[in-house]
Write a protein that binds this DNA or RNA. Structure first.
Length: 292
DNA sequence: CGGTACGCCTGAAGGC
DNA sequence: TGCCTTCAGGCGTACC
């Protein structure tokens, strides 16, 4: 079957993971952490025992997110940041439950959740993700999150407009720039630009207030829709016995270069921008003309 | 300084 | 049918 989950954690997936971890972990204790690949723990706290860095004995107070960054906060202040990169997963298995075979490989860290004995696993085949340990939230923010812009899911029109006004780079590059706004990856960048009718190469600062507000609204809408539908990947470990029940939001442009536009029928164009494959509709997203 | 290019890494997919 | 190449991309760093 072709139901192998093409896992691509963008903001909606990370938010879905955050919500699931919040439900499973808040008020519960992480015990018996094990690290199978040491280079996955990226923090430079060589003075701290690895078990402590992995929140051993910590009762989870909250699970927070900014953009695509996730963090577990323990009652004693310790923080474990998780970044999923592009193939990272945090999986939860009920005690005694079988682990689906396709999740066996590339497990880099594992915890037990007390008292019920749920197993939590961090796996990441391509290892673009990682774990970072901090003594408190302030350290996390100063070391890692202070460089992130406003979260894209809740960014206001005004915040969005001021973010894109700060750069003359192509609007697509601006959307992908995590320090301007946090959480947008290649998929939602292309989808939002299509929805907003904005050509990806438009200089960001030249997107006017009306178009910019429209783009911001479309982006928030797409992300929110995906969060609502986000059970997608979670469903896999909620029902490990099979039933992939994969629900994928239909992409308008992403991965559809050379195919016809779902809105106007014209052939979608594909190009490289900011090192990323970029797909857009030349008719629905007209290039800005410098004329006049 | 602000932009773009590249490398890290592995699995899927396509060509011959 | 099988091997080999290419591609995917978040993000740090290197470079212009």
């Amino acid at each position: 079957m072709g139901d192998n989950v093409r896992y691509m954690p963008e903001l909606p997936e990370v938010e879905t993971v955050r919500a699931a971890l919040e439900t499973a972990l808040v008020g519960h204790e992480l015990v018996r952490p094990r690290l199978f690949r040491h280079d996955v723990l990226c923090s430079s706290r060589h003075d701290e025992p690895i078990a402590r860095q992995l929140l051993s004995g910590g009762v989870i107070r909250s699970v927070i997110r900014r953009g695509k960054h996730l963090a577990l906060v323990a009652h004693d202040g310790r923080v474990l940041e998780i970044h999923l990169g592009m193939t990272g997963q945090v999986l939860l298995y009920p005690p005694g439950g079988p682990i689906p075979e396709r999740f066996h490989g590339h497990v880099h860290a594992r915890w037990r959740v007390a008292p019920e004995g749920t197993t939590m696993v961090f796996r990441d085949p391509r290892r673009f993700g990682g774990l970072w340990s901090f003594p408190d939230v302030a350290s996390l923010v100063s070391a890692r999150w202070s460089r992130l812009g406003v979260d894209a899911l809740t960014i206001t029109n005004a915040e969005f407009l001021s973010a894109i006004a700060r750069t003359r780079s192509p609007i697509k590059s601006a959307l992908l720039n995590q320090s301007l706004l946090a959480g947008v990856g290649n998929i939602y960048a292309d989808e939002a630009l299509f929805a907003g009718g904005v050509h990806p190469r438009t200089p960001a600062c030249r997107v006017d207030a009306v178009k910019g507000a429209e783009l911001a609204a479309r982006l928030r809408g797409l992300l929110a829709d995906a969060v609502r539908a986000g059970g997608t990947t979670l469903r896999d470990y909620a029902a490990p016995d099979g039933t992939p029940g994969e629900f994928r939001l239909e992409h308008r442009v992403y991965g559809r270069g050379g195919q016809s536009c779902r809105r106007c029928g014209v052939t979608l164009r594909s190009c490289q921008l900011a090192g990323r494959t970029t797909v857009y509709c030349p008719r629905c997203q007209p290039a800005v003309t410098t004329a006049r």
